[in-house]
Simulated assay, not measured.
Amino acid sequence: MTAALDAFKNSKSVRMKGDFKDEGQAVRIDVHVGTTQADGSMQGSFGNAPSTVKLRTLDGRFYMNADQAFWAGTLGDKTTGAALDGKWVLFPPSQAKEFKTFLGLRQFDQEVFTPLRKDLTVSGGLTTRREDVGGVPAIAVTRPGGKSTVFVAASGAPRLLRLTSTQPVGEMPEGTFDFSEYDAPLNIQAPPNPIDISKAR
């Protein structure tokens, strides 16, 4: 289990797909995360309006692209929402703290897997069982009474395949998250002419 978490941290890239709840609303995320970058999308009802939001991070900068309804609901300003409709928006680090998990694999490891390691290494031992993840044989590892289960490939390289939790794990909300496409090449570039959110209002 520890080897799988370490392999995640040391990979060049990983694809993460997850389903979780944000303030009671179902959210689905699909993002490729590299060492210092990420690119993907998030679907859900934000501000009571269904939206697909594009996410991108690069070298510590966070960008988001969404429709008018999302921006109006998120910012509470219909005029600004209309101005940002379909445009890439740059968030300064101080306003993107909730997305710091996706700044890169090492950041993700620090924000999510460091507390997970502590949870799975406390006294009480671990339980394991065999289970498939997307047709791939895996070993599910959990602590008796624990709220999180880690699924690791049963053969070959020690790959983390899935994490399920009924409570937040560090900065990751409760839900189910699948990990695949390890070390796939990424070519993520900053979007052209993003709007600085700090200057948009």
Rank of each mutant, 00 (worst) to 15 (best):
K97H: 12
F177L: 06
K147V: 00
V136I: 13
K78T: 10
T128C: 09
F113K: 07
E111G: 04
K21V: 01
F108A: 13
I197F: 01
A138M: 04
E111C: 01
V14A: 05
A138Y: 00
F62S: 08
F62N: 02
G146M: 04
S198G: 14
G145T: 05
P194L: 09
S165P: 05
V122F: 06
I139P: 07
K54C: 07
G124L: 13
K199Y: 08
G24A: 06
T164P: 09
A154R: 04
V53Q: 15
A26I: 02
D19E: 15
L126M: 14
V27W: 11
L84K: 00
A157M: 01
V112H: 02
L58C: 04
P168A: 03
K21M: 13
V122K: 15
M64F: 04
W71I: 05
R129S: 09
S94M: 05
K9G: 11
N187W: 03
G146N: 14
T80C: 14
K199A: 12
E23S: 12
T52P: 07
W88T: 00
A138P: 03
G60T: 03
F8C: 07
A154E: 14
T80R: 15
N10K: 14
K9H: 06
D30S: 14
A26R: 08
D59G: 09
P191F: 09
N187M: 01
F179T: 04
A49D: 09
S45L: 07
W88E: 00
G125K: 15
M1W: 11
G145N: 13
A3P: 00
D67M: 01
G156T: 13
V89E: 00
